[in-house]
């Protein structure tokens, strides 16, 4: 649904841009392609890594890891899994809901969801391209620590 809004925005933007200045519009499209081609090699590599990781680390395995262990280790495990894997939201949330049903606690789920979104181990090469090593490391470590704290709070609140 939201993707259509983005397409409408991009399409509308292109149209307005084209009416105003054809040369600039052509340049915009060139830059769009250049930015995309710039990340394409890493991007394709990441897709394969995710495919391999998720075929080995099946939802059943994840459920086992997070569902049977509880407490601090469960939270840490959930946070590590969330950091390493990269699952699109529309897969991750139903998975998280299933995990809850299968006995995982809110704390583990919060750690999993939060690191899944904020920490990206497989996408580090892409992030380093824009932010350099140091800033990338700082952001990911800070996001990891924050996710653990957030999980703690959610575990207490819910």
């Amino acid at each position: 649904m939201f993707t259509y809004v983005l397409y409408a925005l991009a399409g509308g933007g292109l149209l307005v841009s084209f009416v105003k200045d054809r040369g600039k519009t052509k340049m915009a499209l060139k830059k769009a392609w250049k930015s995309f081609e710039n990340i394409l090699p890493q991007f394709l590599a990441i897709l394969i890594i995710i495919g391999l990781a998720l075929s080995i680390l099946s939802p059943e395995t994840i459920t086992m890891l997070m569902g049977t262990r509880s407490g601090v280790f469960g939270v840490l495990g959930a946070a590590l899994i969330g950091s390493i894997t990269l699952i699109p939201g529309f897969v991750a949330f139903p998975l998280a809901a299933a995990l809850l049903k299968n006995g995982a606690g809110y704390m583990q789920i919060a750690a999993f969801v939060s690191t899944l979104m904020m920490v990206g181990v497989v996408t580090l090469p892409l992030e380093i391209k824009t932010f350099g090593k140091r800033a990338t490391l700082i952001r990911n470590v800070a996001a990891f620590v924050f996710s653990l704290l957030a999980a703690l709070v959610i575990g207490v609140v819910l």
Binding site: L6, A10, K24, A28, L29, K31, W33, F36
Partner: peptide, 18 residues
């Protein structure tokens, strides 16, 4: 990715130019 990414990069290009 192919379904989501094109408009993001088009908007990025427009942002860059305009």
């Amino acid at each position: 990715m192919i379904s989501v990414i094109p408009p993001i990069f088009v908007l990025l290009g427009l942002l860059d130019v305009w």
